[in-house]
């Protein structure tokens, strides 16, 4: 027997999460320009609407209206599949994130998480490892040497940084003892000193650097290094397919902000406030969701701040950092964590 209530509940949740991700990605493009403008002492977008707030709408409209060009010599299906894959993998991670404490609405206990699976952390890691396909397939199907070079760079960069990211996650996993993201969040909800970042500061820094690299953000934006590769892996793309690639980057940024807040910064936990006895009214869920959003958007802001502050790495520097610094460092972090846990338990 199918429980129609849960089907409806989950459908609404999926729709809401996808919509929110898309809207935030849309306004992240606006925020990026505004932050760039502030850092470079300019005004930024200020023509469309108050404070240029309608600029993302205008950009989206422009992208939709542009002529769509599909190169003759490439594989047409894969050319279209590239941006679609980039978008799907960007949105998939949101399925296991606990977006807020469970609430009681219309006499039902509603869990603000789409899927509370007991391999949550591995799922996040799996989706991250699939994220490379959008770039690779798109770059190859473009049948352009610059695109191909950019795709190869992107792939090798993502594979290299995935390793350090996974090792940082293993150290965290030793601490939590569970892969379920809802458990990880509730373990941290006692107060600010229970946040995982207090016990795993090095792990968090490694994870943060790897997240920058996985999102292809400066200083790791080698797949779209304009002055070396013209435009990068999406050079042959036009219209909304290009828009999807650019958009997926912002969604990835937002989602990695959410993942970092969930894993290291207590998720929807409010610092300095004990919200455990607030019950489960609808507004508690909303407040928790707002807190998670604040944390995630702060990370998005830091990503943008870094982009407009630090220049790009050279390719050999990128590989040296990944293989010779981050991986030994995360291995060390893992060993120290294991030893400390073993000593404390004895």
């Amino acid at each position: 027997m199918i429980d129609w209530g849960i089907l409806l509940e989950k459908s609404i949740l999926i729709l809401a999460v996808v919509t929110i991700s898309l809207v935030i990605a849309m306004y992240a493009t606006w925020a990026e320009r505004k932050i760039a403008a502030v850092i470079q002492d300019r005004r930024g977008p200020n023509r469309a609407g108050p404070f240029g707030l309608l600029q993302p709408v205008a950009d989206g409209l422009k992208l939709f209206m542009k002529e769509e060009i599909i190169p003759n010599a490439s594989s047409k299906f894969l050319f279209i599949a590239g941006p679609a894959l980039a978008m799907i993998t960007a949105l998939m991670t949101s399925a296991v994130i606990p977006w807020g404490p469970s609430i009681n609405l219309f006499g039902r206990d509603i869990n603000l998480q789409i899927a509370d699976i007991n391999i949550g952390m591995l799922y996040v890691f799996g989706v991250v490892s699939l994220g490379v396909y959008g770039i690779m397939i798109g770059g190859w199907a473009s049948n352009n040497k610059f695109s191909l070079l950019a795709a190869i760079r992107g792939a090798s960069q993502m594979i290299s940084y995935e390793l350090a990211m996974g090792l940082a996650l293993i150290a965290l996993l030793m601490l939590t003892g569970s892969l379920r993201l809802s458990v990880i969040v509730s373990q941290q909800s006692e107060g600010m000193f229970n946040w995982n970042v207090m016990y795993q500061p090095l792990g968090f820094i490694i994870f943060f650097i790897c997240a920058l690299a996985e999102c292809n953000r400066t200083p790791f934006d080698l797949p779209e290094a304009e002055n070396e590769l013209n435009f990068g892996y999406h050079q042959e793309y036009s219209s909304m397919k290009l828009g999807f690639y650019l958009f997926a980057e912002y969604i990835n940024m937002f989602i990695s902000g959410v993942v970092m807040s969930t894993l290291f910064f207590g998720g929807y936990d409010i610092p300095f406030v004990n919200e455990a006895n607030w019950g489960n009214a609808w507004w508690v869920g909303l407040v928790g969701f707002g807190v998670l959003m604040t944390k995630a958007l702060f990370f998005v802001f830091v990503f943008m701040w870094i982009r407009w502050t630090i220049p790009r790495f050279r390719y050999d520097q990128l590989m040296n950092l990944g293989w010779k610094s981050l991986i030994p460092l995360s291995l060390l972090n893992m060993v120290i964590t294991a030893v400390v846990i073993l000593l404390l338990n004895k």
């Binding site: 591995l122 490892s129 690779m136 191909l148 594979i159």
Partner: peptide
């Protein structure tokens, strides 16, 4: 999930990598 991480996420990426060249 390990099947996806290891095979779809790592080994097949390397296959594609070689084929692309």
């Amino acid at each position: 999930i390990v099947n996806i991480i290891v095979y779809a996420g790592a080994i097949m990426v390397l296959f594609l990598y070689v084929l692309m060249l």
